[in-house]
Amino acid sequence: MTAAPTTLAVPVPARRAPRQVRWLLRLHRPTVLVWTAFVLLTGAALLWLGGPLTDASAAAWKAYNACDYSPRCAYDQDAILRYKDVYTYTNVAVLVAPFLVAAWAGGALTGREMESGTARLAWTQGVSPARWLASRLTVPALLVAASTGLLALLHRTAWTAADGRVDTAKPWYDYATFYANGTLPVALALAGLAVGALAGLLLRRSLAALAVSVVALGGLWAAVHTALPHLWPSVTRTSDLGTGPAGTGIPTAEGVVTAGGDRVAAPCGSDTTYGCRAELADLDAVGYWRDFHPAAHHWPLHLVASGALLLLAAVLVLVSFRLLRHRTGPAARPAGGERTRTP
């Protein structure tokens, strides 16, 4: 028998990785283009919002407030409305981005390859399953983190520019604003990527994985939203019976304090009405209290929630690798010199 030419090259991981990345980007070229367009459009809209639109709206509000009840008042109402509209659209775009990532990751990144069998093609074309998954997680993770990070940063910049100048600008504790204004869009997008990749591997069906990923990310977000008030110690503020519960921010709990020092649920808002005064007297209430997160808690809340999401994403990634190894058998032995080659 003739001996086969020993063309077996020792794998060169350092050189092979960029090639894999190149083909990954080629395979997902339409997605990369659409995503780039989405990020550029939203980013441009946010820059427009934070610059000219905020200035125009602030000027309009200044003019409006200067009118001071005069019957004839001239101000640029269009500028105010345009600011509101563009703010809403861009805010939604930033919040939707993680769901787009999850849908793509579940539907196209792993689900489609498992369904059509191209994953197997890749695994028999010099890319081991673990490396296949690694490239499919790291490259998108870098791109997704960079792009959602940019959007969140631009969102925050635009919001900061209007804070205190545009009267209808959303306060920091408005939930839609809050979620878009920090690190959470990045963490949610990365969690969406991990959820999608795992769903695709598990379900091996593109459409099912897409749906499951989006729903799972929605569930994850709901969980974050539920846990949010408890992620950082809240601040308590007490106020007298006349003002009602005070302290603006993200509220966690509120009620009345009795003469005995007990905290009980408030029967009504303040003692300015006769009925409420009677009810408060019955309770022997001496003041209102409210637990809430003031503006200073914006970053702690974002960072703790993001940290939890990233931890979860890491666990999901680990599960994905385990699952793949379980399916495809043990990984290759480390390359050694004692390999025998058949003639």
Binding site: L8, P11, S116, G117, T118, R120, L121, W123, T124, G126, S128, T328, G329, P330, A331, A332, R333, R339, T340, R341, T342
Partner: peptide
């Protein structure tokens, strides 16, 4: 080829039934 399938993978060609 004298080793486990994962290690042998670089030397094994495979054509799936569905030709993905």
């Amino acid at each position: 080829l004298g080793t486990d399938p994962a290690t042998a993978r670089p030397e094994v060609g495979f054509v799936d039934q569905d030709k993905p």
